[in-house]
Design a protein around this nucleic acid. Structure first.
Lengths: 138, 138
DNA sequence: GGTGAATTGGACCGATCCGCTCCGATTAGG
DNA sequence: CCTAATCGGAGCGGATCGGTCCAATTCACC
């Protein structure tokens, strides 16, 4: 029931990247020092985030990263899914998976779907723009 | 972002135990055959659930298990917390933990608390009574 | 009251996944 | 054309999870 560290770090990294949106040209190393995370870990994260289409990467000298979309169009759900895959509390709520042996007779399954959607909705309701502000009013 | 198998199994086990509420005297082995789960796994689960105060256990010959509280007073949140510990998506939302190095400067933390509470609320809104019914209306 | 069987409780072990680090492939600049 | 800088993927160690087994405890029966 706990979020993986990678997903947590990914949110912090994306939040840092969003602050450099105008300038682009932000290297993974720069994000590492800003966030305080290990540099190789940030490299792995930006690789995942780029492959998921959240970051646009430019290789070579003078290259860097920038947001692929406006910060307002990126939510926590997008970031979490990019790192951890589809949001599915149990295997039975995943679109076409049939791993559970209790398929059909299980009466818990529909309730998991409700809980799962509540979680996903809560994550989707937090856009990246809300995370960029340095201090949130108490 | 996925629920552990143990927590999933625990919900199924509690659901099965709730059906025998009147008769009490339900052995872990009986629950195993009803749910189709491995017997040793069910044994481990009932041990955890008993220690958490959700099940009342009676040892010795003719012993067994029964719900410690009415089914209506047991929610998914109770079962999940009994098996997985406190519901905390990140370490920073846990009451008094200070593991994160970004404490104070982190602007993401308050948002995690909101998401975490939404998840917990969704789990608390599903009492065990809703899971006992054999078939949920489509 | 003693014996026996049935049941829970805790401890051990293997396996899978996560998190971290290092090295190669690619590209712009001099 | 060469050098330097950066992203991309492969490999390794550690930790937690899931499954299994054995011992301690307790009630029913004789």
């Amino acid at each position: 029931m706990r979020l993986s560290s990678m997903a947590d770090y990914a949110v912090v990294t994306m939040s840092a990247a969003a602050r450099h949106c105008g300038g682009a040209r932000v290297s993974a190393a720069d994000l590492a020092v800003e966030t305080g995370l290990p540099a190789p870990t940030v490299q792995k994260l930006v690789s995942m985030l780029s492959k998921a289409g959240l970051l646009r990467s430019a290789r070579g000298a003078g290259g860097g990263l920038q947001l692929a979309r406006p910060a307002a169009a990126i939510s926590l759900a997008d970031i979490v899914e990019a790192v951890e895959g589809p949001i599915a509390l149990t295997s039975c709520v995943q679109h076409g998976r049939h791993d559970c042996a209790l398929e059909g007779t299980c009466n818990v399954q529909p309730h998991w779907a409700v809980v799962n959607e509540a979680l996903r909705g809560a994550l989707a309701n937090v856009p990246l723009t809300q995370l960029v502000q340095m201090k949130v009013p108490a």
